[in-house]
Computed example of a mutant assay.
Amino acid sequence: MVLPASLRILARLLVVATAALVVSCGNGEQGARITVGAGDSVESILLAEIYAGALARTGARTSVEPHLGSRADYLSALDAGRIDLIGEHSGALLAFLDTTARDRTPEHVGRALSKSLPEGLVVTDAADGTDLRPRVVLSTETATHDNVRTIADLAPRCDQLTVGVAPVPDLITLPPALEQVADCAFAATLPFPDAEALRKALLDGRIQAGLLTGPPAVVPGSTDGLTILSDDTYAVRAENVLPLLRKGALDERRIEKLNYVAGELSTDDLATMIRRIRDDRAEPAEVARTWLDDHSL
């Protein structure tokens, strides 16, 4: 049957109106674009890709803005509304916001951090499986000879020891104040350019203790011949990964998605992914996508 011209025009208008309604509804579901920021470290860029990818799977429109600079720079970007979300470390962020804070355990750090956040910023769940604290190390020969297995064992003799400090690369940076160990005042502190130089100095006996600014798994082989001292009492302040975001930037469903990510992320996962990006030149977005798929996120 051939429709009259007036009915054909009406039919076309209805099709256009229906299509516009569908697009409108789709945009309403996605809402405003969520911009996830990142500092300059590999870890920060990786976390941004993980968070952006996870949120995109809720239907959100997301983008990543990398290379925002230092902690002060990306906090300014959050404050200005240039970004909505960024990955952080709990202890380092607390130290930056409150230089007088003395809290060390994950629970206490979390509470103190929530109180210290500027108006308009909030955090979601910390990833309990991530432990990015600095590690105190001794040569295995020394640790065995002196029967030292924990930082608490070492504390009574710290004032007799020279400690070397070396950075673990590609992690979100720590404020210098966190390169310290509670109740352990070393006689002297020497900086080293990297973990390998620190390891050699320990094995040669030029220093008696070492402090790596993050988990050694990021730099394989960095603790060969060394013993990592356990720290169940948190002489070194807790450092867990967590998202920092603008209040109201995410609805409950998307906050829950980030909490699922926090429940799955581990220190070993982060170290493995950082090495893939740094050593194998893998794309951060692809590494993040694989991890999300592997964890059904």
Rank of each mutant, 00 (worst) to 15 (best):
D128R: 14
I83G: 00
L93A: 05
T99I: 08
G120C: 04
L117R: 15
A52N: 03
D73C: 15
R135T: 07
A52M: 10
A95L: 04
T130R: 13
A77L: 04
V64F: 07
V109N: 00
L75R: 09
L138I: 09
V137L: 02
G91E: 08
L75S: 01
H108E: 07
G91A: 12
V136G: 02
A54G: 09
I86H: 10
T62P: 07
D84W: 00
S63I: 05
I86C: 08
G81N: 05
A80K: 01
T62K: 06
S70N: 09
P118D: 08
A143G: 07
L55S: 10
L138H: 02
H89D: 11
T144Q: 11
L138M: 07
D128A: 15
D125F: 12
D98A: 07
G120I: 11
L94V: 00
S63G: 04
E107L: 04
G59P: 13
I86V: 14
A80R: 01
E65Q: 13
L121P: 12
R71A: 04
E88C: 09
L75D: 01
T100Q: 11
T144L: 05
D84N: 15
A95F: 05
Y74E: 04
A56V: 09
G53F: 09
S139V: 00
T105A: 09
T142L: 05
P106A: 06
S90N: 11
S76Y: 00
F96C: 06
A60Y: 02
L97A: 03
A80L: 08
R133E: 08
G69I: 06
